[in-house]
Simulated scan of single mutants.
Amino acid sequence: MNQYTWLGLSSILIWASLVAVVKLVTESLSPVQAVALIYSFSALFMLWKNGFPKLSLMPKKYLLGCGALFVGYEILFLISIALSTHREQVLIIAMINYLWPPLLIVFSILARQLSANIWVIAGFACAILGLMMVVNPDILEPKRILVAVLENPLAYSFAFIGAVLWPLYSILTKKYAEGHNAVPFLFLMTAVGLWAVHFVMRELFVELNLMTWLMVVVIGSLIGLAYSNWNQSMQYGHLKILILATYFMPIFSSLMSMLILDVQPLISFWIGCVLVTLGALICWQSTRPYNPSMK
Rank of each mutant, 00 (worst) to 15 (best):
L29A: 10
S268L: 10
G272I: 03
V134Y: 04
N117I: 02
K61M: 06
A116F: 10
A280S: 10
R144T: 11
N209T: 11
V218N: 09
I12Y: 02
H238L: 14
P292A: 04
V218K: 15
L104D: 06
M132G: 08
Q232V: 10
V200Y: 14
P137E: 15
G220W: 00
T5L: 04
A43Y: 03
W195Q: 05
S268E: 03
G193R: 10
Y98M: 12
V90A: 08
A116R: 02
Y176V: 13
V71G: 10
Y73T: 02
A177H: 01
K295H: 09
A43P: 02
V192R: 00
V19E: 06
A20Q: 04
P265F: 11
M215D: 06
G72K: 07
T5C: 03
S228Q: 03
Y169R: 02
A163W: 01
L210Q: 09
P184R: 05
E27M: 15
N231W: 01
I171R: 01
I243W: 01
L281I: 15
Q264G: 03
Y73C: 02
I243A: 15
E151W: 11
I128W: 06
L186M: 09
F107Q: 07
V90P: 00
T246D: 06
W100N: 11
F199G: 11
L210T: 11
Y227K: 00
F124N: 07
Y98T: 04
G220I: 03
L114W: 06
L242C: 09
I109E: 04
S28R: 14
G65L: 09
Q113C: 10
R202Q: 06
S254M: 06
S80P: 00
R288M: 15
Y236K: 13
D138F: 04
V21I: 15
S228A: 11
I171W: 01
I109D: 03
L244R: 04
P142G: 14
M189A: 08
L222F: 07
S115H: 12
V206I: 13
V106G: 05
V218I: 13
G51L: 08
P250W: 13
W284A: 15
M189T: 05
L37T: 04
E27Q: 11
L186G: 00
E27W: 07
V149L: 07
P31M: 00
P137I: 11
L103K: 14
S17N: 12
L225D: 03
P137Q: 15
I271E: 02
L55H: 05
L47E: 01
V71A: 15
A94C: 05
F269C: 08
P153R: 06
S157N: 07
M211D: 05
A36V: 06
P167W: 05
V164K: 02
E178N: 08
L261Q: 01
R288Y: 12
K175H: 14
G65M: 06
I241R: 12
V218W: 08
F205S: 10
A163M: 05
S80C: 08
G162N: 07
V164S: 12
R112Q: 12
L18Q: 05
F77N: 05
W6C: 04
C283H: 03
I219V: 12
E203I: 00
A159I: 12
S30N: 13
F107L: 14
V19G: 01
P153G: 08
I79F: 02
A245F: 10
M201R: 01
N2Y: 08
A111M: 14
W48M: 12
Y62R: 09
W15T: 06
L64I: 11
I139Y: 05
S170T: 13
K240M: 15
L114E: 11
Q3E: 15
